[in-house]
Computed example of a mutant assay.
Amino acid sequence: MRLLVGGYSPDMEGTAAGIGLLVAGDADAALAGATLSFRGTVVEAASPSWITAHPTLDVVYATLEGEAMIRAYRRIGESAYEPWGEPVAVGELPCHILVTPTADRLWVTCWGDGRIVTIGVDATGRLRDSADLPAAEDPYPGFGEERTPHAHQSVALPGARVATTEMGLDQVRFWRTGLGETRLVQEVVLPFGSGPRHMVWHPSGHLYVITELSCEVYVLAPDATGTWRILSASAIGAGLMPGDGAAELAPSRDGEFLYGGVRGSNTIGVLRVRGAGDRLDPVALVESGVVWPRHHRVVGDTLLVAGQHSDDVAAMSLDIRTGVPGRVRGRVEVPSPTCLLPAR
């Protein structure tokens, strides 16, 4: 399996030269294997910390985080890409890109200043116009010093809706899209200082939200009126350390388990989905095999973990019955990896 790797370059105190190529197992297989090989840089770019793919075209989009830009890249060979169109300026420290299901817009969340920017996409995958969405306001005024917004991720939901996390202000915001406009319809407030970071939309109709600062996973769902609310919350696992910060949340292939990465203690928390999807139970907290697990991805029975500070990617086997990752079966040096994306 081929995967593109985003990473940090020297402008963000990293060592990556651009978007890299990782091969896990057989390069032409649909699933990953434990034998890992890093094939170098497929296109030079300055800190492409997050990359995502167009759903139908051989085009990927990257956050050039230090430059506050988004750029499209087109595949031109087996392992080569080129810039496609002009970059588009966004907010400070863009950290995530969502391509809408209709593939006509990108949603960009910016950690540095909290901006959410949408960018048009033409029929060839090039970037067009951009627009800012309304800024978030702190739902906890008067709780101390003024807080800074930090938008972090967007997830597409059924019914032409998008959810975004506002890590700095402890909110999950819900938007309705379509008919040429985007409208904020609701904000769900999480506990003060929890720091919602990334989300997973589950087939059961629940939205799972991992919190960077409190290291929990919240379960959100709409009621009969369509109003979103918090149903439950669970710690990522027992044994976390002071100063830990959660990063990515990823589901198992069958949706029965969730995997939450924790930087600091460098662990992966395993949670089992219970009931109708409205409850999560911690199962295990295991070593991630890397330092600073920034991102991870489940591919079949393999968990691939990107170690931002150890400059490597590790492959761990998953126990299908318990969902718990086993020992590291493969490892390869990769410069400052921050994102893993299956490549076509």
Rank of each mutant, 00 (worst) to 15 (best):
L31M: 04
E137Y: 01
D278E: 15
I320H: 13
R161L: 04
D129W: 04
A103S: 15
D122F: 01
E82S: 11
G20M: 03
H54N: 01
I119G: 02
L341R: 13
R294S: 06
M316L: 15
I210V: 15
V99R: 03
P242C: 05
L249K: 04
L36T: 08
V332N: 02
C215R: 01
G14L: 03
R327N: 11
G168C: 10
Q308V: 12
V324C: 07
V313T: 07
G237S: 08
V185H: 00
H198N: 09
G6P: 02
V90N: 02
R274A: 14
P141T: 13
A247K: 06
R71S: 12
P10N: 11
G7I: 01
D28S: 13
A27E: 13
D11E: 09
H198K: 06
Y259A: 02
E92Y: 10
P55C: 01
D278R: 14
G239R: 00
D11F: 07
R331G: 02
S265P: 08
A53H: 01
G307Q: 02
P293W: 02
L3P: 06
T118P: 03
A235G: 03
G180F: 06
R183A: 09
L303C: 08
E44T: 07
M1L: 13
A151F: 07
L220V: 11
S49N: 12
P191W: 08
E44A: 05
L258D: 02
V332E: 09
Y208P: 05
A62M: 03
M316S: 10
P87H: 07
I70S: 05
G168Y: 05
R297I: 15
Q171K: 06
A135G: 12
V42S: 11
R115T: 11
S49R: 03
V43I: 15
M1S: 11
A45R: 06
L220E: 02
T211C: 09
A250G: 05
D278K: 05
G205E: 04
G66R: 13
A306H: 03
V189N: 10
V42C: 12
G14D: 08
T338Q: 09
V185W: 08
P149I: 08
A151C: 07
D132F: 11
G18P: 05
V334G: 08
M12W: 10
L57A: 14
G226V: 09
G193C: 07
L340N: 11
A30H: 15
T177E: 09
L303T: 01
D11S: 15
T35D: 15
H295D: 12
D278Q: 14
R126W: 00
A45F: 04
V200R: 06
